[in-house]
């Protein structure tokens, strides 16, 4: 099953994101098909490659759930209409600095 989020055009740079089944943590699909909690590890894809990556992710449901494509900038950072939501998913709630992933060493500087 895949989460329903806003549709993105084929040329828009994107990554596959999901949740880790065991912990519920936000994860991103890497080039090797593994999953990382660090957005900078994610593979940026467009067009058919994005469709293939999402299809592969959907079958990986022992490890992750509800994968979907999210928009990123050319440099791989969070971008687009859902920037705030995806920034919060990537870094943690804005209201608890102690829970910020960068503070906890989860996100590479």
């Amino acid at each position: 099953m895949s989460s329903v989020r806003p549709k993105l055009g084929p040329d828009v740079p994107k990554v596959i994101t999901a949740w880790d089944v065991a912990t519920g943590a936000t994860v991103y699909r890497t080039q090797s098909g593994d999953w990382s909690q660090d957005l900078s590890d994610a593979e940026t894809v467009t067009g058919e490659a994005a469709d293939k990556a999402l299809s592969a992710a959907v079958t990986d449901e022992t490890r992750i759930l509800d994968p979907y494509v999210m928009e990123v900038s050319d440099e791989g950072g969070v971008a687009g209409r859902e920037t705030l939501r995806e920034t919060i998913r990537a870094t943690g709630p804005t209201t608890h600095p102690d829970f910020h992933k960068a503070e906890r060493g989860v996100i590479n500087a």
Binding site: M1, W19, G24, A25, D66, I88, G92, P93
Partner: peptide, 20 residues
Amino acid sequence: TEDQFKPLRLMNGVYLQLHA
């Protein structure tokens, strides 16, 4: 699968939120 599991977890108060 998650589709099979989701109703079971919801019946035990387990939701999936933005990052946990």
